[in-house]
Design a protein around this nucleic acid. Sequence first.
DNA 1: CACAAGTTTCAACAATTATTGAAACTTGTG
DNA 2: CACAAGTTTCAATAATTGTTGAAACTTGTG
Lengths: 175, 175
Amino acid sequence: MNPTDNPAAASLADARARFIHLWGVSGSSWGVSKTLAQVHALLLVSPVALSTEDLMEQLTISRGNASMTVRELLDWGLIYKELRPGERREYFVAEKDMLQVTRCIIRARKRRELDQMKRTLDELAALPGDPADAGYRAFHTALTDIQQLANVSDKLLTRLMQAEKSWFWDKFLKL
Amino acid sequence: MNPTDNPAAASLADARARFIHLWGVSGSSWGVSKTLAQVHALLLVSPVALSTEDLMEQLTISRGNASMTVRELLDWGLIYKELRPGERREYFVAEKDMLQVTRCIIRARKRRELDQMKRTLDELAALPGDPADAGYRAFHTALTDIQQLANVSDKLLTRLMQAEKSWFWDKFLKL
DNA sequence: CACAAGTTTCAACAATTATTGAAACTTGTG
DNA sequence: CACAAGTTTCAATAATTGTTGAAACTTGTG
């Protein structure tokens, strides 16, 4: 049966497309490339593993793009390779546990951004200066305040990464 | 005295420049324009209010850019206008309380991204379908899982926005 | 080892996003 | 109301970022 014969299937395809679009747009506004987010979205809602070929077709992207995107998603730990015995072609499945997905994203971004930022802040905040100079005081105060914020964020994110499913559910039920 | 005569002042200027650069780079990787982040950084470490003219000079950006950036920062609530009696020119000061800064950023992004996303997710998750269809099940499961995550995030962010300074300090001292 | 099937790389190109700068606008003042 | 001092707008342009596609590479197989 052709998918367009079935109204439910047609609207599922639409909904899927809208979701993929949503995920792409959201990614873009958080500094993630649209394609990366879309490949992730497609795999998240796919009941089966997909090959590079499938991704190319379904998202109309080039082989090169698909390849690089898939590699990056593997790096993040958001998708897995699925090798089929006797087949050369690689298939990919998404990590479907959203708690796990959240952990991956937090881990990766924290490492890349926050940890790096903390190092630089430490360097800059260590600068000695004349406390009688308003310019120095303003700089130093701002920096130590930001350092504190970075430290609190670090702790909060670390906690979130360790969060258990039970905590997650508690939060959801409370309030 | 020329600033370059004083080694402390020179290194303060350097540190300031590095901080502004750091903030710009960090902004870029979170979907915020570099200039926006840099103007914010400059005002954060400035002991006095600065005019559009000052921003243009210190960051070597155009008048138009400075004007638009300032307006956006005002929208976010991250900076304030300071009007001086008998002067036409507008000056700007940054909100210096980092807890307050965090609240502003969370509030703005939550409104723009999360709330909008939740609306779309609700629409998509409402799609009826055949539970015998693996494609539908995968889609529906993924969507409801994401909805839950969005709800938990919403609650968490709302809590964070309401966080008191005391909570903030507790977090910092603990662990 | 030659080939087929698939993957990766990367320089050229396309799309997106940010920035400029000059003209239009606003507003307080004599 | 004409002017000066300042601000805003926006079409043109620059900078950045993402994408393509073809060539180089890898790997399993006869």
